[in-house]
């Protein structure tokens, strides 16, 4: 049972990590917080709901989530960040994106209602198991974990080894010198938002598949917890976001296992507060800084 709870924690934590990666990517590049990110994540879940309601195959929901959430990311960049580039506008941009998030929540609630909406998955998907090292594990958990880890590896490769990634790193280092070197900063900002939002959309979609429902308030519960995880991992620190996400997922799963329930949730916030006060650069910060 303990092993299964830990696996549950890792699966949950990989969702946290995917969302936290988006926060940290945007913060690393623009030095700003995107408060609409949690709602982008929430929207991903409703893509799954819509797909199952329309009877479309589940695999089709993935590209749809990427496109829709990526587009939302572009919109947020345009409305809430394009005009507020200066360091002084840090708070303005955060509040503007927060307001966009409120609009997204309301639109989703108008379309799907404010109660959680369940989605119909084929029985085979829900009940299939795989046998790993003598333990029967739900196939869907393993699949989700595999997709999440693949996405993280892909993001790492993208940032480290491609031209897009090189530009992203250059702008994260200094937008001014990147611009002087001929990097199109606006384009990099847009790419960053699309990548971050697509990751969040995938995470929301997979969480809906895993739990069997999508909820419109999840951006303010799950999504904002990922924000705390980003701060724990170090703002702008990609590896910190991944490690922090999985760590928190496992802690929460163990809290459920040992009957601590709701108190498990507050641990994230207390750790975040302590990290911000004591180690603002993040829990996993070593001498070599791995920035977005």
């Amino acid at each position: 049972m303990l092993a299964e709870q830990i696996l549950n924690g890792i699966v949950l934590g990989s969702m946290y990590a995917l969302v936290a990666l988006g926060y940290t990517l945007v913060f690393g590049v623009l030095d700003k917080l995107n408060f609409a990110h949690g709602e982008t994540f929430m929207l991903g879940g409703f893509v799954a709901v819509a797909a199952s309601a329309l009877g479309a195959p589940i695999w089709l929901a993935f590209p749809c989530a990427i496109v829709l959430c990526g587009a939302l990311g572009l919109l947020v960049e345009w409305v809430s960040f394009r005009k507020f580039q200066s360091a002084d506008a840090q708070i303005t941009a955060a509040l503007s994106s927060l307001a966009v998030g409120l609009i997204v929540i309301d639109l989703v609630q108008k379309s799907f209602g404010s109660e959680p909406v369940s989605l119909e998955l084929p029985l085979a998907v829900r009940t299939a198991t795989v046998n790993i090292a003598g333990t029967e594990l739900a196939w869907i958990k393993i699949a989700i974990l595999a997709v999440a880890l693949t996405l993280m590896a892909a993001l790492h490769a993208l940032v480290q080894y491609t031209r897009v990634g090189r530009n992203i790193r250059a702008v994260a280092e200094s937008p001014l010198s990147a611009a002087l070197l001929g990097v199109n900063v606006r384009q990099v900002n847009q790419q960053t938002f699309v990548i971050a939002s697509a990751l969040a959309g995938m995470a929301g979609l997979m969480l809906a598949l895993r739990t069997g429902y999508a909820a419109s308030d999840i951006g303010f519960t799950f999504g904002i917890k990922a924000l705390a995880i980003m701060a724990i991992g170090g703002m702008g620190d990609l590896r910190g976001a991944m490690a922090g996400g999985i760590l928190v997922g496992v802690i929460e799963a163990l809290a459920v296992q040992y009957g601590l329930g709701k108190l498990g949730e507050v641990v994230v916030w207390i750790v975040m507060i302590l990290v911000l006060l004591i180690r603002p650069a993040g829990l996993f910060q070593s001498s070599t800084r791995q920035r977005a």
Binding site: Q90, L227, A231, M272, L276
Partner: peptide, 8 residues
Amino acid sequence: RGVYLILL
């Protein structure tokens, strides 16, 4: 300060 204080 700034966004760090918002988070906190």
